[in-house]
């Protein structure tokens, strides 16, 4: 197996605790054991510096801070590990990718966890915290995920057409 690519994304803010956990040798070992050979990280504005390329524990690692469009990285990934931001979550699910959301506990009580919890309840994704990440990741049964049901922007459009008497 030489195909598994993991893409991790933290959005436009910073989430160094997650990046550190992902780059720890113990986690890289779990990735390797699960058959993943490549880890791409979008690390945002944190204090950790991006690296062009290095290989540890048999996993090829590369990272960058921000890109206007992460679509290509999402598409290339077999698994996405994301912060709880709606943008990352929706874009990942729209591509029908396996998604593990890591909630930032320093923002606990923040409404962003609502979306992850709600979607996890629907079976669209799994979520965890930085602390439980290695344990949960090792034990996830991806086959339990349900196919993502996208939202209905067309209902919004027809409501607007109606409102304006267009049809």
């Amino acid at each position: 197996m030489d195909r598994g690519t993991v893409f991790a994304t933290v959005g436009t803010t910073s989430f160094d605790e997650l990046i550190e956990a992902l780059l720890s040798d113990s986690f890289l070992q779990i990735l390797h054991d699960k058959g993943y050979r490549k880890l791409v990280l979008q690390i945002g504005r944190g204090r950790i510096e991006p690296v062009a390329q290095e290989t540890r524990c048999g996993v090829e690692i590369s990272s960058y801070r921000l890109k206007p469009n992460i679509q290509d990285d999402l598409m290339a990934a077999d698994l996405v590990i994301s912060h709880a931001g709606a943008g990352s979550v929706l874009e990942t699910l729209a591509l029908n990718k396996r998604l593990l959301v890591v909630v930032n506990e320093t923002l606990m009580g923040n409404h962003q966890t609502e979306l992850a919890e709600n979607f996890a309840g629907e079976g669209f994704l799994f979520w965890t915290t930085v602390k439980n990440l290695p344990h949960d990741f090792a034990n996830i049964d991806w086959l339990k995920l349900k196919k993502y049901q996208p939202g209905r922007p067309d209902l919004f459009a027809s409501y607007m057409d109606n409102f304006f008497g267009l049809s």
Partner: peptide, 17 residues
Amino acid sequence: GSGGHTTEALSLLRALD
């Protein structure tokens, strides 16, 4: 707005004629 708000706005916008 940044991030999520923009994703939502753009997907609604794409549905309009």
